[in-house]
Structure formats: structure tokens, C-alpha cells
């Protein structure tokens, strides 16, 4: 990691982070949920002012959801991935829209696809899906095939697909 990044990691030591170096310019910091906002603020104050992405991972076997904030520094081109895990059965977290207004939309998206509530962000209208009535679709227990079968029953086609294919292949004349 770069000098400025290793200095920052030292500053963050007080939050008991688990630090993984992904590559020279990318470091993952995992902390407990209550430390996330403080870590984000510290990083923001030290050049990591750009929230590139906010996303979520479903760890269904651990009954946890992982929230990931990706921060980028325009000063040294480094990236910090700040990660924490929250309870999957009642997923709640605090909004960071006061730090980055754009987080409003990321949080709406994560709410829509993973079902996480963000306290302090009241705008949880669906962002992408229309008339969704199933569990959030990026949860690992969502069965896309089952949903597809339920919502879109099979259609009986009359066309002779084999004959058509054979005509396309030049095996028989159409």
C-alpha cells in the first residue's frame, strides 16, 4: 500500500479493524457496525472523499448481510473498501446521506434488492423494479426460475421448430 494509505490504516487502528490488502492501491477495512460511520468520516476527512459505490452481499449461511462502501481518493488514486456485517433477519442500518448525498440512491437500491432499511433515509420508493411482490431479488433464497414460472406461465407454441431449424441449416428445403 502507498505511504498515505498505510498512515491512514494506522489512524484507523483505534476502530479495531480487520485489514486486508487487496492490491497496492486497494484496501479492505472490516469493522463492527457501530464503527462504520466514524471510519467513513475519518477517511473522508483524509482525502477519500468520493463514494464510488455502496453495495451489499448476502451471506445466507451466516444469516448476515455485508454492507460495502467503496471510497476513492482523487489525491493518490487509492481505494478503501469499508465493510461491515449486519443481521440478515432484521436488516437495519443508518443512512450516510449526510456524508454523501448520492448515498440516498445507493441506499434505495440496496433496500430494493436486499431489503435493508436505512434509518434517516425516508425515500425508499422502488428504484428499478415494477410492482415487485416477492422477497428482494438479490437475496440468495430468491428463486428466479420459480418466480418466472409463477409470473409468466408457459405458452404453447404450434410452430414446428425442428423443421424450421433444418430449413435454416439447409438440410431440407423450406
Amino acid at each position: 500500500m502507498t505511504n498515505s494509505m498505510s498512515n491512514l490504516v494506522k489512524i484507523l487502528e483505534s476502530f479495531n479493524p480487520f485489514v486486508e490488502e487487496i492490491d497496492e492501491k486497494e484496501i479492505k477495512i472490516t469493522v463492527s457496525p457501530d464503527k462504520v460511520v466514524a471510519v467513513l468520516e475519518t477517511l473522508k476527512a483524509n482525502g477519500y472523499s468520493h463514494l464510488s459505490l455502496m453495495t451489499c452481499v448476502d451471506w445466507i449461511d451466516d444469516n448476515q448481510l455485508e454492507l460495502v462502501y467503496i471510497l476513492f481518493s482523487w489525491e493518490d488514486g487509492g481505494k478503501f473498501l469499508v465493510s461491515t456485517r449486519i443481521d440478515r433477519s432484521n436488516p437495519k442500518f443508518v443512512t450516510v446521506k449526510e456524508l454523501w448525498p448520492v448515498a440516498r440512491f445507493y441506499e434505495r437500491e440496496i433496500h430494493e434488492f436486499f431489503g435493508v432499511e436505512f434509518e434517516g433515509n425516508d425515500d425508499m420508493k422502488p428504484l428499478f423494479l415494477e410492482l415487485w411482490d416477492e422477497r428482494p431479488p438479490l437475496r440468495k433464497d430468491f428463486d428466479p426460475r420459480d418466480y418466472s414460472r409463477k409470473k409468466f406461465p408457459d405458452r404453447e407454441y404450434e410452430k414446428d421448430v425442428i423443421k424450421e431449424a433444418k430449413i435454416f441449416r439447409g438440410e431440407i428445403n423450406g
Binding site: E158, K159, A165, F168, R169
Partner: peptide
Amino acid sequence: DAEDYVYMPTEKGLNAKRGLYEHG
């Protein structure tokens, strides 16, 4: 015609109606 939306892909691909490319 809904029947135009089911097909068995071959080397030539779908004979797309109003498509970009000539069939195949």
C-alpha cells in the same frame, strides 16, 4: 406473431424480422 418468438438456434441464428443483419 407470437410464434415468431420461439426457435431452435442453429449455426445461422434467428431469422430476425426487421433486424440489423442478413440472416446468418
